[in-house]
Amino acid sequence: MMGLFKLIRFLFTLVNPATNALSNAPLEWKYLATNGLAFMWCVAFGLYVGEYVTIGYSIVGHIALITMCFVTYYVLRYSRKRFDPSERQ
């Protein structure tokens, strides 16, 4: 049972944006690496399941989802810098 908890803790450190390997990378590199990983996982699961026709749809869907996550992050970060009430006079 302790092995399962250690595995779950390890998996959470992989996706934690403050501690994973991409935490110090620039935003463009994070986007590229995330899309590359999503592409590889789509192909891996598509080949495993045997759904060769839907691999392309899965890749396009993942790219759209990841792109919108990064766009949302950028807009929120930009608006926080642009409209920070503490800097207004």
Rank of each mutant, 00 (worst) to 15 (best):
G56Q: 08
N16A: 06
I63E: 04
A21K: 06
T34L: 04
W41T: 02
L4S: 04
M1N: 09
H62E: 07
Y48R: 03
Y73I: 07
M40Y: 03
V60Y: 00
H62D: 04
Y52N: 01
N24W: 01
L22E: 14
L37T: 10
T19S: 14
F45P: 00
A25W: 12
V15P: 01
V15Q: 01
I8A: 10
L22M: 15
N20D: 10
H62L: 04
W41F: 09
K6Y: 12
V15E: 00
V53Y: 09
L14S: 00
E87P: 00
A44V: 02
Y48A: 10
F10R: 11
S86C: 04
Q89D: 12
V15G: 08
I59V: 15
L47Q: 06
C69A: 13
L65N: 10
K6V: 09
P17G: 08
F83S: 09
V15D: 00
I63L: 15
D84I: 05
R80G: 02
E28N: 11
L11W: 01
T34V: 02
F10G: 02
I55D: 09
A33L: 08
M40L: 12
V49Q: 05
P85L: 12
V49T: 03
A64H: 03
T54L: 07
R80M: 05
V75H: 05
V75Q: 13
G61D: 03
R9D: 14
A38I: 05
Y73P: 01
A38P: 01
G50W: 02
S58M: 10
A38S: 12
A64C: 09
S23Q: 14
V53D: 13
F45K: 05
A25F: 15
G56K: 06
Y48S: 03
F39E: 04
Y57V: 12
A44K: 05
N16F: 02
I55A: 08
I55G: 04
V43I: 13
Y73K: 10
I66P: 01
L7V: 04
K30I: 06
C69N: 11
G50C: 02
S23M: 06
N16C: 09
T13I: 02
M2Q: 11
E28W: 08
F10N: 12
K6D: 15
G3H: 05
A33K: 06
K30C: 11
S79C: 11
T54G: 00
R88A: 13
W41Q: 01
T19F: 11
G3D: 14
S58Y: 06
P26N: 15
T54E: 11
G56Y: 03
I63Y: 08
R9K: 12
P17N: 08
L4K: 06
T67R: 10
G56I: 13
K30T: 06
T13Q: 10
N16V: 04
I59R: 03
A64P: 01
